[in-house]
Simulated assay, not measured.
Amino acid sequence: MRDPPTDRFLCYIAEKYAYGMLTQSSSIEPSPPPPFFPPKPSGLQKLVPGARERHAQEVLRLQERHRNQITEHAEREQRRQYSLAGARSDHEKKVDAQRRKVEEQHAEIDAFHRDLKSGSPSAITNYFTLVLTSSEYPEGFPQQAKVAYIPESKQAIVEYDLPSLDVIPAVSTYKYLKTKDAITESARSLAQRKTLYASVLSQVVLRTLYELFKADRMGYLETTVLNGYVESLDKGTGHTMRTCLVTVRTNQDTFNKLNLKLVEPEACLKVLNASISKSPSELAPVRPVMELNMVDPRFIESTDILSTLDQRVNLMELTPNEFEGLITNLFQKWAWKPGKRRPHAMGALTVSLLTHDPFSAARLLYRQNATKIR
Results as ranks from 00 to 15, higher is better:
M1L: 06
R2Y: 13
D3F: 11
F9K: 01
E15C: 02
Y17L: 07
G20F: 04
G20W: 04
S25I: 14
I28A: 10
P30C: 06
P30R: 11
S31I: 05
S31Y: 04
P33V: 00
P34R: 11
F37M: 05
F37T: 13
K40L: 14
G43K: 07
L44W: 14
P49V: 04
G50V: 08
R54N: 12
Q57F: 08
L62E: 15
N68V: 05
T71D: 10
E72C: 09
Q81I: 10
Q81S: 15
L84H: 10
G86H: 12
A87D: 08
A97E: 12
R99P: 01
K101D: 03
Q105H: 15
F112W: 07
R114V: 12
D115T: 00
S118K: 13
S122C: 01
A123Q: 01
I124F: 02
F128D: 00
F128N: 00
L130E: 07
S134Y: 06
E136D: 10
F141W: 08
Q144C: 11
Q144P: 00
K146R: 13
P151N: 04
P151I: 00
P151S: 05
K154R: 12
K154P: 02
K154I: 01
Q155Y: 05
A156L: 01
A156R: 01
S164Y: 10
A170V: 05
S172H: 08
S172G: 06
L177E: 12
D181V: 02
E185R: 15
S186Q: 15
R188S: 05
L196K: 02
Y197E: 04
S199N: 15
V204Y: 07
L206N: 04
L209I: 08
L212Q: 05
L212M: 14
F213T: 00
F213G: 03
D216I: 00
G219F: 04
Y220P: 00
L221H: 02
E222F: 06
V225M: 07
V225W: 03
V225T: 08
G228R: 02
Y229H: 10
V230H: 12
S232F: 02
L233D: 01
K235V: 10
T243C: 04
T243K: 05
T247Q: 03
V248R: 05
R249K: 13
N251P: 00
Q252L: 04
D253V: 14
N259S: 06
L260C: 05
L262K: 15
L262E: 14
E264D: 14
P265Y: 07
E266W: 03
A267H: 11
C268Q: 11
L272F: 03
L272K: 05
N273E: 09
I276M: 12
L283E: 01
A284N: 10
P285A: 10
M290R: 14
L292I: 01
E301S: 12
T303E: 15
D304H: 09
D304W: 06
I305R: 12
T308Y: 08
L309A: 08
Q311T: 11
R312S: 15
T319E: 04
N321S: 13
E322T: 03
E324T: 11
N329I: 01
A335D: 11
A335L: 08
K337Y: 13
P338A: 11
G339Q: 09
P343E: 02
P343S: 07
H344W: 04
M346Q: 13
L349Y: 06
T350R: 06
V351I: 12
S352K: 07
H356D: 09
D357T: 09
F359S: 14
S360T: 14
A362M: 02
R363E: 06
Y366R: 05
R367V: 09
Q368C: 09
